[in-house]
Design a protein around this nucleic acid. Structure first.
Lengths: 154, 154
DNA sequence: CGCTTGCTTGGAGCGCACTCCAAGGCCATA
DNA sequence: TATGGCCTTGGAGTGCGCTCCAAGCAAGCG
């Protein structure tokens, strides 16, 4: 894993990818010293380098900046974004929809309304999903207790 | 949709695919008159005919019997099984694992223990999944309320 | 009889979300 | 100077869970 030193120029702007709602995560390095190589991000997020590059190719990442040799240097806001994306993925949201959300973020404040709608629809999906899982849990519990009863006898 | 009349020979045995825990579903036709064509099962379950045939090919169905011309005739127990499989699929269980469970059912009572373990591990997965979704819900709610606040102002 | 509808099969194809490959650049250490 | 490690790219490949296709059979209807 290659660790980078921070150059003064980097600390200038921390462009807000998606400013809203401060995430509770605390970052590996404080803002200003946050320039992570791809392999560091692999270690932090559990995603593969392939996947990180692929996310960028398909437009799922807000522009990641580069070192003078062209290598990716991720920042804290990128880690936050990746955390959020990972959460969305866990809901089963298709990647295409996440890309749509990413586009809205790039377009700026004028898309707040549409972003809210998108998240609310996702929220409904999550609630439905939880309800389904509860249902399934009930079925599993009935089957399991059947096996526990019969199994004990024979 | 082709509807079949029941021949006396068919009512003979209702082989229990997976006897345990009476499902609360009530069937389209009572036991004894339960011989459904594939397209009826499509209508009942929402699965496609392709998928039903594929399930059979990969060993996910307990033997489905046939009409004298070789067409599939599903019975109430098959509908119950398909309901259960659908629930398992909703948990995200891989098809290969469902096939494994189907094999255990075919092998008979001696596999009660292993079936119980398999379902208990699935149950744990479901609980984990619900916890993840709750987490995600919290994130979504924070973002949504941010947009609701800001969105109202601008 | 011909036509339609519904079913049969093995095998090929598809969409999604990665996952990997080949060829090459940069740079630190020996 | 050479070797190794980490990085770059476009494009091809993979695994899963279906999804569809072509060719053909059986039954019902005018």
């Amino acid at each position: 894993m290659t660790v980078m030193q921070t150059t003064p120029a980097d600390t200038a702007r921390t462009a807000p990818a998606d400013i809203c709602s401060a995430p509770p995560r605390h970052h590996p390095r404080p803002d200003g010293q946050d320039r992570y190589t791809i392999s560091e991000v692999v270690a932090f997020t559990g995603l593969t380098a392939h996947t990180l590059r692929w996310y960028e190719r398909i437009g799922l990442m807000p522009h990641v900046d580069r070192s003078h040799t062209g290598q990716r240097r991720y920042r804290n806001r990128d880690l936050d974004w990746l955390d959020f994306v990972t959460k969305l993925r866990l809901t089963g949201m298709p990647v295409a929809d996440m890309v749509r959300y990413a586009e809205l973020v790039r377009e700026g404040e004028s898309t707040y309304g549409e972003r809210q709608e998108l998240l609310e629809s996702t929220r409904r999906d999550v609630l439905d999903r939880i309800a389904e899982l509860r249902d399934t849990l009930a079925v599993l519990d009935r089957k399991i207790s059947f096996y526990a009863g019969e199994g004990a006898v024979r």
